[in-house]
């Protein structure tokens, strides 16, 4: 769930763009360095970016009766690292805004920060902490927490922009989290399971090839 085009007041749009910009610039430098050494990674990165884009178009029925979709950025962050995912996430968000009317350009900074910065960094840190003990559990938790943090940050961004008339920012945050919760918690768990299945298929294919 991204914040829609035109939803944020201009001051908030500028603020979140300023916050997200250093991460994207750092990611671009990292990516250009990576591609200078290994040009063929361009194709793998594009495949992962396309996968993230298509996942977001593949609607999964959710508990609230509406439909939701996985973000796919947790997996990308684990494969290529959070800096690269900040850039790939930005590319995916621009395509989502232009091709699927999902997200927007004025809200791009806010969406980059939630989906391409906060989520991937949390996922990567959790996986780094737990990978030596129980690799698959760490992978599952990393993706689940990465997705939940993405939606948590989105709820905070919306609450800051639209405080509750009676209970202020805190009340608004509770409202947005309550509305997103029933959809996003099962979705985050299912994305964690999906990532495990993807990694299993991936490992099986690699073994088959060798």
């Amino acid at each position: 769930m991204h914040i829609m085009e035109g939803y944020l007041p201009v001051s908030h749009a500028i603020l979140w763009t300023t916050v997200a910009a250093p991460f994207v610039v750092h990611g671009i430098r990292h990516l250009l360095h990576l591609l200078a050494n290994r040009p063929s990674d361009k194709l793998t990165l594009a495949a992962v970016g396309a996968y993230t884009l298509v996942l977001s178009a593949l609607k999964v029925p959710s508990v609230t009766g509406s439909s939701s979709h996985p973000t796919g950025t947790g997996l990308g962050a684990l494969l290529f690292g959070p800096p690269v995912m900040a850039v790939m996430g930005t590319i995916v968000l621009i395509f989502q805004a232009l091709l699927l009317a999902h997200g927007g350009l004025t809200t791009l900074g806010a969406n980059i920060f939630s989906m391409a910065v906060a989520g991937p960094w949390v996922a990567w840190l959790i996986f780094r902490l737990g990978r030596r003990r129980v690799r698959r559990v760490a992978l599952f938790l990393a993706v689940v927490m990465g997705t939940l943090v993405t939606y948590g940050v989105t709820a905070v961004q919306l609450a800051l922009a639209f405080p509750d008339p009676l209970s202020g920012v805190t009340g608004a945050m509770v409202k947005f989290l309550t509305v997103f919760g029933p959809t996003q918690i099962p979705l985050a768990i299912s994305e964690g399971l999906l990532t495990l299945v993807v990694i299993n298929i991936f490992i099986k294919n690699e073994k088959h090839d060798t």
């Binding site: 063929s40 194709l43 793998t44 495949a47 992962v48 996968y51 609607k59 399971l193 298929i201 294919n205």
Partner: peptide
């Protein structure tokens, strides 16, 4: 529907990477 969507999503990444690998070989 949820199960089918997840199976489909899980099958797509290996196929995407396979496509990328073939394109890389060709290039």
């Amino acid at each position: 529907a949820a199960r089918a969507a997840h199976l489909l999503a899980a099958a797509l990444l290996p196929r995407a990477l396979e496509r990328a690998r073939r394109l890389e070989t060709g290039l």
